[in-house]
Each structure stands twice: as structure tokens, then as C-alpha cells.
Design a protein around this nucleic acid. Sequence first.
RNA 1: GGGCGCGUAGCUCAAUGGCAGAGCAGUGGCCUUUUAAGCCAUUGGUUGAAGGUUCGAGUCCUUCCGCGCUCACCA
Length: 506
Amino acid sequence: MAREFSPLEKIRLEKLEALRQRGIEPYPTRAERTHTSRAAIQAFEAVEAQGGEAEVQVTLAGRLRAMRPMGKITFAHIEDGEGRVQLFFRANDIGLENLQFFNRDFDLGDFIQARGRMFRTRSGEVTLWVDDFRMLAKAITPLPAAKDEVVDGEVVSHATLSDPETRFRQRYADLAVNPEVRAIFRKRAAIVRALRDFMDEHDFLEVETPILQPIYGGAAAQPFITHHNQLKQDLYLRISFELYLKRLLVGNLEKVYEIGRDFRNEGVSFKHNPEFTQLEFYWAYADYEQVMALTEEMLAFVADRVLGRRTFSYQGHEINLDPPWKRIELRQGLLDATGIDIQQHPTAESLAAAMQAKGMEPKPGAPRGKLIDALLSTYLEPNLIQPTFLYNYPRDISPLAKSIPGDPQTVERFEGFIGGMELCNAFTELNDPLDQEARFLEMGRDYDADDEERHPMDEDYLRAMRYGMPPNGGFGMGVDRLTMLLTDQHSIREVILFPHLRSRGD
RNA sequence: GGGCGCGUAGCUCAAUGGCAGAGCAGUGGCCUUUUAAGCCAUUGGUUGAAGGUUCGAGUCCUUCCGCGCUCACCA
């Protein structure tokens, strides 16, 4: 099917043809630039501040974002990676014919290059006085461009692209016209950089482990399934890094971390995307208390680096990342929030009865761990605004965590919450291969690999553990959620460049 | 997957069941320090798609597509 151009696009295609008729290549191979917008303005202001007469000659490049032709002069703004700068064209300098050429055949959205000297206009804006200009790349489709107005020094945009569907499907257009969106992703990059620096500075080794896995594990999520043609083998996209990273501890890599993508074939929501970025680390000879302390240190470090301070606003709440975080034992937290002591209810039946007695509606047939998880999600999580660790979780929802000595039903596990949202999950890792095998069996893994209904036993992981795994603490954190917090975004889609959307036949 | 809501020009939005509109963008013209520049003129629509009710549907009904919120799901 041939591309259908809109009427607006057809006009621009005519201009493209007009350029070619003049012998001008609308997509030249090379560009020139001596200064960014900001550098040019700063260079001029520096000369100005010294009272100097020296001319600041520059060649700038960027995207045309505003044009104001006024007879025999034209003002325009171009935008580059650092900001905007005004251009001033005058028929006296470039010739009337060239000015009209610019006004007629150049459009908003085109990339251009302009040479000249910097000056300050009567109304005070540092501007490029253009003596030569050139097309760098013609835009055929008009940007959904807003018009900006400066009111009391604040930029007010009118008719900005705001439809979420268009913004996410055409993120390039969103980024091109919404500078605050670009700022979010710059901040995200700074967050990831800070996390990496923190781990490196603490002597953790960055590693990469398989995304395509014959047996998935490390979390209780549904996987995506794919297929290797030549090997005639189904493979899963990983749902966590955990089991591979802990194999590395068996290999005497004492401190390892990975930052990468996980894939979970589950519901999409404002805090769930099917693929998301996680940081996991495993730390030999540490326990969950040490991991808790390192978590506090890490987030304070990231905040210092990225924000320059440890407080920030999230959805109307002032959050403070100064250590130490609040610590609440899960049992006590649930007791305070619901009046139910989970310790008094060692079975699902007993706990469900207690919940019913409180007027709750526990899901029929749910195991005890699920009921506790539901209580946590409903009665605790939404209220955990300031950084808080919930710790000591029931064993039956934590098959990879080690029990508390003397309390086999409770494991050394914590989750960190900020802004009413789960951010991280960590525990003292189970390193007893026989106990691990028993837990896998309890969780429904099976040695009978022929039965497709059952999740196969990860025998290789157990073999690794049998070689001996040092005691260790492990940690996982959603990098997207951390970015949501530090950029004050309610939706995970706002911090993922190309969030998952249902495909559409265009 | 369930419930609720939304989908109108390139963008942002109007339109009691009764002629589909505005601002910006676009096009033509005037304008030599403007900055949402201004002034004059003007183009632009399968109202997400398909059916139905009605003399008449952007509006009401059904189905479908997509998006949002929410619930469920989610160690």
C-alpha cells in the first residue's frame, strides 16, 4: 500500500522539490556546528560582561521551532540539545530573495544550520545575526508543535501534545516538542549511572546473565515464551536475574550485580510494564541487615547525585531519603493496621477466618502467604509514604530466602516502600541445597519435565548450590519505579521511553 | 479478563437529536528589532470503524478497535 500523504505533508513535499530545483540537497550528508545554543549565548554574554567589542562568530545547528517573518526581516527560534536560541535574518544581509526563500520553503520542524555573529536585540534577547543558513534535514510531517509564551519569566505552552496514546506511540514526537519529557529521561540516565557508580565503588562486579532461559525462576511471575528454531527448543525470557547471579557466588565471584531488563507476562498498570528494568545484587557473607543498611546508603547516594539533595516531592508528599528508614516488622505492622496477628494464625483457614471476623473478604482457597500479601498490599503499602522497610516475611511466599534461626516459619526478608509503592525486595539468601530442593517441590516444581503443566525443577541451580554457596544477602529493585519517584511521575509509562501499548494496524 | 469513562481539523478544544466550529499550525498578501508578533484574506473533516433507531445522529442504541482510570492478576 502506498504511503498516503496528508495535505499538510503534500505542501512540504512541494517545498522539498523546490529545494531540489534550486540545486539544494534537503538532506545533506554533513553538518557544521561551532557552538551549541547555550555555548553561543554564554560566549556572547562573557564578552558583553567584559565590555568587550569582540565579535562572537558562531555556526549553530538545530530544529526550527518558531518563525516570525515581518516583511524584510525574519525572527526565528531553533532548538538544539541544550535549549533554544533566536535567529535574526535581514534582507540587507542575505538578500531579499534568500529571505523569501527561507520564509517560504523552510518550515517548523526542519533542521537547519546558521552562521553569523551573536548580538542582543532591542528587547534584550541574545540572538544570532544570520549571514548564511542552510537546510540540514527537511521535515515532511509537521510536529504537533505547541506555541510558547513567556509570562513573568515562566514558559507557558499552548496546545501542547498531551494525548497519552500519541505521546507513547510516537515518543519521538513527544520528545521533540515536550522538553520536560526529555528531562525525565536525562534524569533516568543519571539515576542508572549513579546506581552503577555506587555498586562499582562498593566493589561489586557488573555481570550479564542470560535473558533467554530454558527454565525461568527467581520470582512468581508468568513468563514470555519464545522459541529457538535451530535447536527446536522453547525458551523463556527471564523474569528475574536471581538464580543466575547466585550461581556466580558459587563460582567465587563474591559481589555481583546486574542492571537489565526483566519480562513478566502479566497485567499492565500504572506501576507495571511487561518489560522493566531491575537492579539486582548478591553479596557474599552479608545478611539482610547489612543489605538494608546498604540500601539506605545507596538511595541517599543516588539522591545526592541526581537531585543534589535527599528530599523530593512525590505526588504531593515530601519524601526524605536520609538514613535510617523506618523499620516495621511485618507481623507488628499487620497487627497495628488490622488487629490480626498472623503469628496466631499458622494456617490459611485460621487466617481467613480471622479476616472474615474483621469484615474482610479473603479470596477463597488462597494459601496463607497470599492472604498475608493481600493484607500487606491493602492495609500497609498505601500508607508507607516515607521510606520504610517491612521485614520478616512468611516462609511460604519466600522460597529463596533463609529462615530466621529458631523461627522456621519466618524468613529474613525485607521489602522497601516509598510513596506507597514497593520499590525493592531483599533477603538473606537460602544457600542450603537440600532445603532449597524441598522448597522448590513445595512451590510446585517437579522433576517430571514431560508434564507441561508443571514448572520443571531447576536441577542445574541445585547442582550449583551443592558445590557450596557462601551465605549471602541479595537485593532487587525496580529502576523504573525509582525513576518514577525521583521524577515525580505517577505512571511507569512516563519513565519508559517506549512503553508497551496494544499494537494497532497502522 | 470485569466495571466506568473517553475518541471531532496537524495540535488543543467547542458544538439541546437540527447548517460540524474556534484558537494555533497551514496557504496568499502587508509589515526592517519581533517573541503565543500584528493586520487582511483563506484552505482544511469518512466526527476511531461498522451497523441500527430517527424526517434528521458528533450527540441515542449495538458490536468492534484504541486509550485512560479502576478492580482482578502480580513471591
